[in-house]
Write a protein that binds this DNA or RNA. Sequence first.
DNA 1: ATTTTAAAAGCAACTATGTTGCATTAAAAT
DNA 2: ATTTTAATGCAACATAGTTGCTTTTAAAAT
Lengths: 130, 130
Amino acid sequence: MKTTRNTAAKTAVLEIFGKSKTALSHTEIQKQIGDLCDRVTIYRILDRLVNDDIVHKIVNLDGTVKYAKCHHHAQRVHIHNHAHFSCENCLEITCLENVKPSYILPHNYKVNDINFTLSGLCPNCLNSNN
Amino acid sequence: MKTTRNTAAKTAVLEIFGKSKTALSHTEIQKQIGDLCDRVTIYRILDRLVNDDIVHKIVNLDGTVKYAKCHHHAQRVHIHNHAHFSCENCLEITCLENVKPSYILPHNYKVNDINFTLSGLCPNCLNSNN
DNA sequence: ATTTTAAAAGCAACTATGTTGCATTAAAAT
DNA sequence: ATTTTAATGCAACATAGTTGCTTTTAAAAT
Ligand SMILES: [Mn+2]
Ligand SMILES: [Mn+2]
Ligand SMILES: [Zn+2]
Ligand SMILES: [Zn+2]
């Protein structure tokens, strides 16, 4: 069993996630980290955090990849089956933890992971853009 | 109104889509196209086909982007709200045209597009792997 | 407290994917 | 046949992510 270590960089990344209400891309994290660590290190930290079910990965229709903290640890089978909203205007991606899709799958499919992303206009942009 | 033209390259791409039962990446199409046209041309054809609602774009959790023919033209509001299945073993992505997620969104969100991708093991790989 | 060990980081080089500008070609309307 | 402009080719660029290898360092063992 390989142990996971608490490094300065990892702590900084987790702190950034803690402060953010929206999902963050590698680049956005890098901007906040500055030169505290190398950009490769951020990639590796994100990989580890995803592996340890501490953050989850969100892939948008435009190809951008973002990460957000998990708010639902207890479960044994850890699937992020909630929706994500991607605003085409402000480009923010938010977890909609309470929006869970229901669907009926044909037999003989084994689902390990779900990516459910809705794009459009978020409440903020819908109001101001009218 | 700008008109769309039928070129040799576009015809070839459409033919490739016609023959394929699974979704195709730019690279996969390029391999089949050979040197019939430049790789940039394939990108531009795919963009046009997506714009014209002839194919739709699928983004997988591993970041790979694939395209598949649309089988549902008639509708006015053209949203590809069906599920896609991405097999972690054979790496094929298939449209599950009949699997449509239902979900309840909070007020004030305007949805323009949906990306709903399930990853796991497809029926083929589930059988042969165990 | 000191030593050990292997996880994590730094750095450079590389790959993969997608984009842009501009000159040239060719589909299709006239 | 001529005209128009969508589409292509090509080169250069941009961005995101990966890999190999050495060095550093967290934390376990002593
Ligand atoms: Mn989420
Ligand atoms: Mn589809
Ligand atoms: Zn917004
Ligand atoms: Zn499979």
